[in-house]
């Protein structure tokens, strides 16, 4: 009986530690471009898309390239593995998840933050009058 209890406790403790380590590892920290460049770690950077600078989709590599300015006004080239994110044009800000690589920010994911678009607002009510 005692052996069983010990085994159960060991299983639970191992499970909890495994879970906690995984949780912390997979929770990508927020950072700015400067910190991201120095650490080389995978981070999330919040910023704004530079509309007047080059942005294009490379068909061969299936990468979307654009320029982004972080909250410290630092502008960097961002290469996203994938197509242009949805609602990219109307996003008020974007969050790029990735790390610095060969002088640019290489993103695995870019989330767009949009003005609340699904709830009806006063502006859209006027449009449908």
């Amino acid at each position: 009986m005692n052996g069983k209890v010990i085994a159960a406790v060991v299983v639970i403790v191992v499970g909890v530690i495994l879970g906690a380590v995984n949780f912390l590892e997979s929770n990508v920290e927020y950072a700015d471009f400067g910190t991201a460049e120095r650490s080389g770690k995978k981070v999330q950077v919040k910023g704004e898309w530079m509309r007047d600078m080059e942005s294009r989709f490379d068909m061969e590599k299936a990468q979307f390239t654009f320029y982004m300015r972080d909250d410290n006004q630092q502008v960097e080239k961002v290469v996203l593995e994938g197509a242009k994110p949805n609602n990219f044009e109307i996003a008020t800000s974007v969050v790029a998840k990735g790390r610095f690589q060969n002088g640019h920010f290489h993103a695995s994911e870019v989330l767009t933050k949009c003005p609340s678009k699904y709830e009806g607002d006063a502006e859209s009510v006027k449009k449908t009058l």
Partner: peptide, 17 residues
């Protein structure tokens, strides 16, 4: 103080065993 989601790998790693 800042919300962030876990990566998909979290679910795979914890749930596979």
């Amino acid at each position: 103080g800042k919300a962030s989601a876990v990566e998909m790998s979290y679910y795979v790693k914890t749930n596979l065993p």
